[in-house]
């Protein structure tokens, strides 16, 4: 059984406790944060375990690269303080069960694009941006074999991740690709952050989609026509696990000639899409989720955004329609880049 490598001393010595103090969803001062973190570390009850909306952000806020979020969800499970109602957890766990045959394992050399559980978006990568890249998990019937499992952090169920992840890693590794570009940022976070925090061995190198896109755009630089849009970026929860790659967002925007409107919910202060908050057990969760979505979209409008750029398909699914209704075009980052090199998108 894998266990979290959490450095208690580092946390005890921390002077900021940014993990909780900066939390957008709980109002916690420094003294309270210290006490609550200690409670959590010592495996005592804490209101944080009850009230955490599982937005992942504390992973990024932690100045020490410790893993407060992984610790919180691990404790939620130990204390059976699951944020979601039981049937929603069962449903979520069952979603990830592959049921339509084994994947076809073909050996792939060089860098490979992994669609994870978003095989249905494969048509979006039929682009010169991804030219020459073999694609892993193209078949929606088999996609759960490539499921990174990280979504169970929202369920307070690290045990499910730890049970299943090794098998997914083996499936991916069986293709023998050495470098893997993950279409979904959450997969990248799994293999680069979660796995190492829990001591799970990953025998391939992961490349962040935005890093890949940036480098590919550099290769196609002569073909880029500046788009001249004002955009807003919907930063997903999983990007908190790879904050070192977040800089690629601005680098790509600069390269393709779009400007980020001035926003309140940006970078560290980005607002979660709420994809699991609406169904949490805590009273008022649905309304709370509605409210943060509204604040987020209003903020995009105030920034005069013409396009909302999505990284994560789940965010797109959750607020894409509402963003569209607000008169802002929802687009995946990869699609925005395709526009910049003159490709048409549907």
């Amino acid at each position: 059984m894998y266990t979290l490598k959490f450095h208690e001393d580092m946390c005890a010595a921390c002077e900021t406790h940014d993990c909780l103090v900066k939390c957008q969803h709980m109002n916690i001062d420094l003294d309270t944060a210290k006490i609550q973190m200690e409670n959590i570390i010592k495996n005592r009850d804490s209101f944080v375990l009850h009230d955490c909306v599982t937005c992942y952000a504390c992973e990024e806020y932690c100045p020490n690269g410790n893993h407060p979020f992984y610790l919180i969800v691990t404790r939620q499970e130990e204390h059976k303080l699951f944020p979601l109602p039981d049937p929603i957890i069962t449903r979520g766990i069952q979603v990830g069960i592959p049921f339509r045959g084994d994947p076809d394992i073909t050996e792939m050399s060089g860098p490979v694009l992994n669609m994870g559980v978003f095989s249905s978006l494969t048509r979006r990568v039929k682009s010169r941006l991804f030219e020459g890249l073999p694609i892993m998990s193209e078949d929606p019937r088999k996609m759960f074999h490539y499921f990174c499992q990280l979504m169970y952090l929202h369920y307070g169920k690290t045990s499910v991740i730890n049970d299943r992840l090794e098998k997914t890693i083996q499936t991916i590794a069986a293709h023998k690709a050495t470098e893997i570009i993950h279409f979904h940022d959450e997969c990248y976070g799994t293999y680069t952050s979660y796995a190492s925090a829990f001591g799970i061995d990953v025998p391939f190198k992961s490349i962040h989609l935005f890093e890949y896109l940036y480098n590919r755009l550099l290769e196609l630089k002569d073909e880029i026509k500046p788009l001249n849009y004002t955009v807003a970026y919907q930063r997903p929860c999983s990007s908190r696990l790879s904050s070192d790659k977040h800089a690629y967002v601005s680098k790509i925007f600069d390269l393709i000639g779009v400007t980020e409107g001035k926003r309140k919910y940006v970078d560290e202060n980005a607002m979660c899409c709420g994809s699991t908050i609406f169904s949490q057990k805590k009273e008022g969760s649905r309304k709370y989720c509605d409210n943060i979505q509204k604040l987020n979209i209003d903020d995009m409008k105030n920034a005069n955004a013409q396009i909302c750029v999505f990284n994560c398909p789940a965010c797109m699914e959750t607020i894409g329609k509402a963003v569209g209704k607000a008169g802002i075009m929802p687009l995946f980052m990869s699609d925005l880049c395709r526009l910049a090199i003159g490709e048409k998108i549907k």
Binding site: P85, P87, R286
Partner: peptide, 25 residues
């Protein structure tokens, strides 16, 4: 209507953890 359905009529199931919203909209 959503408020009446989920926050009022079905609220006790959500809060007790025996029922949950699977999807909205």
């Amino acid at each position: 209507k959503r408020h009446m359905v989920f926050d009022v009529a079905l609220s006790k199931f959500i809060r007790s953890g025996t029922g949950g919203i699977g999807n909205l909209a």
